[in-house]
Amino acid sequence: MTDEAAAPPLAGVIAVEISRGVSAGHAGRLLSTLGAETVLVEPPEGNPLRREPPLLPPAHEASALFAFLAAGKKSVTCDLTTPAGRAGLSALLTEADVLVHDLRPDERANLELDEQTLRDRHPNLIDVSVLPFGAFGPKADWRAEEINLIHASGEGFLLPNGLAAELFPERPPLKVYGHFAEYQGGVVAALGALSALVSRAQGGAESVDVSIQDATLAVGAFALQRLGDGSLEHRSTRSFKYGGVLECADGYVELLTLEERQWRGLIELMGRPDWMLDPELSDSLERSRRGAEINRAIRTWAREQRTADIVTRAQALGVPMAKYASPAEVLSGPHEAARHLFQPVEIPGACRLPVLSAPFHVDGAALALRSGPPRLGEHQHLLSARHHRERTAITAEVS
């Protein structure tokens, strides 16, 4: 950054990350992308996500998942089972603003990283814990994989739905591809860290306890609200009365028509067919009652349309519609390019590849990645006594 105005929001903030899973890794990644100096503390053999497939060519040594989660971070190795390793971590925490981790309560106690000990030794440190079911309660020590979390949150029960449920009615409940639930936990953990940073000046440092299950439950809050009237949503009924995913001649689009103006735009988009001009369909409740009938007509029409043409015309008419793009189309898309969503970075063990910086802008501008993922122990000098003396001296001069 060349001037103070262009500095990222968390410039000057130091975050220490101890992670094995995606949630804590994603929280650290978000803090790093927002400008924090995020130091990933790894065991001597490296963070386990370094070995998580898919592995990138040409050497097939670098994990695509780790490359994304660790981009912009620094790496030190610490054997926390030894006094020297714990001393090195303690030195890092003395200067840190945030610790984000996924250590279970028993592990924290054994490593003297429990909440009370951290508060006594590092009173200005914000402690962010992100675990499958939180750090308190009967499930605090439970382990869980993504498939457990997506179903524990109720989201798995509702998939597949919409068009997928109609096309494949015999399919069992499905897991969303990738790490949907764990990413939700990471987002909530990062937001918790940001909130604690904002409030620290008034009330001191806080501890943040995030349950990945709770974070993912929030995604389906609308479905949960329906329990109030005694109904239970099911994947066979969880769909828009009409619209949703539509199959076109060359791909798929998503259509949404929740507002009256969007329905009127859809009428124009489809060329004002006689059936849509039925006066009864001017009533939104009647449209809901006749949703299956409307959807059959829309889908018949959509199969004859080209995705690029239909999306362009829909958006011009104020009809919410977007194409389901392939990964290659996302990387080369004009929208993504205009927003600078992807940035090429060097990935050790692979090559220079585009990596998502952040799915949002700050003050109207894209956030930049400092670098690709670090090599294991690349920033080991951060643990040296000389480094800490120099950093302390710089901090004192600034103050």
Rank of each mutant, 00 (worst) to 15 (best):
Pro359Ala: 14
Pro172Asp: 03
Glu95Met: 07
Ala325Met: 14
His234Leu: 11
Ser199Thr: 13
Glu304Trp: 02
Tyr252Gly: 04
Gly28Cys: 00
Ser399Trp: 05
Pro374His: 05
Ser153Leu: 03
Ala71Arg: 07
Ala11Pro: 14
Leu103Asn: 04
Phe240Gly: 11
Thr77Lys: 13
Ser236Gln: 14
Leu31Asp: 06
Leu383Pro: 00
Ala71Asn: 07
Val41Cys: 05
Trp142Tyr: 14
Gly154Met: 12
Pro348Val: 00
Asp106Ala: 15
Ala181Gln: 04
Arg51Gln: 12
Phe136Gly: 08
Ser129Met: 10
Ile126Thr: 10
Gln213Asn: 06
Ala350Lys: 09
Gln184Ile: 07
Val245Asp: 11
Arg119Ile: 05
Glu293Pro: 01
Gly377Ser: 03
Pro172Gly: 06
Ala70Trp: 01
Arg20Gln: 13
Glu280Ile: 10
Ala368Phe: 00
Ser282Thr: 15
Ala337Tyr: 01
Gly72Trp: 00
Arg86Met: 10
Pro354Met: 03
Asp250His: 06
Pro359Cys: 08
Tyr183Ala: 04
Cys248Tyr: 02
Leu113Asn: 01
Thr38Glu: 07
Asp363Trp: 02
Ile294Gln: 07
Val319Leu: 11
Val311Thr: 09
Ala249Asp: 08
Asp102Phe: 00
Leu118Val: 13
Leu30Val: 10
Trp275His: 05
Ile150Tyr: 08
Pro160Val: 06
His26Thr: 03
Ala11Leu: 12
Glu166Ala: 12
Thr81Gln: 15
Leu34Lys: 02
Lys73Tyr: 00
Glu115Gly: 04
Val219Ala: 14
Gln225Leu: 12
Gly372Gln: 09
Val98Asn: 01
Lys74Gln: 11
Cys351Glu: 15
Ala91Glu: 12
His387Tyr: 14
His379Ser: 13
Ala165Tyr: 10
Ala189Trp: 03
Ala366Ile: 00
Gly21Glu: 02
Val176Leu: 15
Ala87Arg: 11
Ala190Leu: 04
Phe180Ile: 12
Phe342Ser: 08
Ser239Val: 03
Ala165Asn: 09
Phe168Leu: 13
Ala358Phe: 10
Ser384Arg: 09
Leu217Ala: 08
Gln116Lys: 13
Ala193Thr: 06
Pro123Arg: 15
Ala165Lys: 08
Gln262Ser: 05
Pro173Asp: 07
Glu170His: 15
Ala366Lys: 00
Phe66Lys: 02
Glu61Phe: 00
Ala91Lys: 11
Ala368Glu: 14
Gly204Asp: 09
Asn47Thr: 06
Pro348Ile: 04
Ile347Gly: 07
Lys139His: 07
Leu269Glu: 04
Leu369Asp: 08
Asp274Leu: 15
Leu55Asn: 06
Ile147Leu: 13
Val16Arg: 03
Ala70His: 02
Arg272His: 14
Phe180Cys: 11
Gly28Trp: 01
Leu167Asp: 07
Asp309Leu: 06
Val208Thr: 02
Pro172Arg: 07
Gly192His: 04
Ala223Leu: 03
Gly243Arg: 04
Ala221Ser: 14
Ala314Pro: 03
Gly228Trp: 04
Tyr177Ala: 14
Pro54Met: 02
Ala358Asp: 10
Ala350Leu: 10
Val245Pro: 06
Ser153Asn: 08
Glu61Val: 10
Val176Gly: 12
Arg121Val: 09
Ile310Asp: 02
Arg143Asp: 13
Ser326Glu: 11
